[in-house]
C-alpha cells in the first residue's frame, strides 16, 4: 500500500517534469523559458523525492534523501538567479513574445 502511494506521487512528479520540457520548446523568449523551466523543475524535484521518501518509509535511506532535498532547495534559487542576472547585466533585452 505504501509503495503504491509512493509510485503515484512519483508519477505526478514525472507529469510536472514533462510540462516543464514542453515549456522549454514552446516559448521563443529566453526570459519566459527560464521562468517556466527552472521552476517546474523545482516542483518536480520536490514531488519525486517526496515520492521516494513515502515509498521507503522511515529509515536511514529517507534521511539521506531529505538531506539531498534540503541541499537542492538551498542551491536551486541561486542557480536561477545567477543565470538570469548574467543575462540581464550582459544587456539581453526583455522583448514581448512574438
Amino acid at each position: 500500500m505504501q509503495q503504491i502511494i509512493g509510485h503515484i506521487i512519483i508519477g505526478i512528479g514525472l507529469l510536472f517534469l514533462a510540462f516543464g520540457i514542453l515549456g522549454i520548446f514552446r516559448f521563443s523568449n529566453f526570459y519566459a523559458r527560464i521562468l517556466v523551466a527552472s521552476k517546474i523543475d523545482t516542483v518536480a524535484f520536490l514531488t519525486i523525492l517526496a515520492g521516494v521518501i513515502v515509498r521507503q518509509g522511515w529509515s536511514a535511506f529517507s534521511l539521506r534523501v531529505v538531506l539531498i532535498l534540503v541541499i537542492m532547495l538551498l542551491i536551486n534559487p541561486l542557480i536561477t538567479h545567477i543565470i538570469t542576472r548574467s543575462a540581464y547585466l550582459s544587456g539581453y533585452k526583455v522583448k514581448k513574445e512574438d
Binding site: 510536472f16 510540462f19 514542453l22 515549456g23 514552446r26 516559448f27 523568449n29 526570459y31 519566459a32 521562468l35 517556466v36 521552476k39 517546474i40 523545482t42 516542483v43 526583455v94 514581448k96 513574445e97
Partner: peptide, 15 residues
C-alpha cells in the same frame, strides 16, 4: 506551479 502549468498550456504570458 499549478498556475504556471496552466499558463504553459494556454500560452498567454507577458514577461
Amino acid at each position: 506551479g499549478i498556475q504556471t502549468i496552466g499558463k504553459i498550456i494556454t500560452g498567454n504570458i507577458h514577461p
